[in-house]
Nucleic acid binder design. Structure first.
Lengths: 107, 107
DNA sequence: CATGCTATCTTGTATTACAAAGTAGCAGTT
DNA sequence: AACTGCTACTTTGTAATACAAGATAGCATG
């Protein structure tokens, strides 16, 4: 039972959420996740997720020049991605309420 | 991205929580999970978890007669199990706050 | 030209939820 | 007695997926 196991099935929804807030690229998403409090989400975790999201038609990507450094792959949500994000939020609401009822219940 | 993936790393903590509330057995835990709102957590999910928890020394089990039906394996938390449950709650707090910041943030 | 930061991708591994199937006890009905 | 359905636990195989580790490469600064 580790923290990383708890991320399963949540990470992809969180990435949809971050892209939903505005076009962004992989490397920057890692920094944003850290700001939200996610500890040590590594590149090896998110790049495969981004590719899966694209394969499933939830995101669209464009290569753009960086003002300094290598090119960046910027992601945006497709309509299907917006819909998927809405569904993720509902699933998260349901799950987190269940866990909180259990964990915070007095007795 | 399915609901079942979101359970990963959470189910074992929830089982610790249910046992923490009082001695109980596998079949009954499934019913209790349903009451808390967990949808369709099947036997094939929880029995392997219970065996892992026992192997790791977090729970102790005793076979007892049922007033009707086959014998039941009743579980209780060991001190290490109580400690593990406390740590799970902290990890859950941290993770759920991070996700909620992301998901509920206005922008 | 060497170092370090930025940026992406790939491979292999470990974890784990779950479907499916099996075993078996007991109660009530036919 | 045989059948049906509920209770109760176990095992096997599969699919999903987070992540470590490593590879590749552009750019800037000293």
């Amino acid at each position: 039972m580790s923290s990383s196991q708890m991320l399963k099935g949540i990470l992809d929804g969180c990435l949809l959420g971050i892209i939903h807030k505005g076009e962004t690229y992989g490397y920057e998403m890692i920094e944003k996740l850290e700001i939200y409090g996610f500890r040590m989400v590594s590149e090896g975790s998110i790049y495969p997720v981004l590719m899966r999201l694209q394969k499933d038609g939830f995101v669209h990507s464009v290569m753009k020049e960086s003002p300094s450094g290598p090119k960046r792959k910027y992601y945006t949500l497709t309509p299907a991605g917006e819909e998927e994000y809405e569904q993720f939020k509902e699933r998260w609401e349901s799950l987190s309420h269940s866990v909180n009822r259990l964990v915070k219940e007095e007795n």
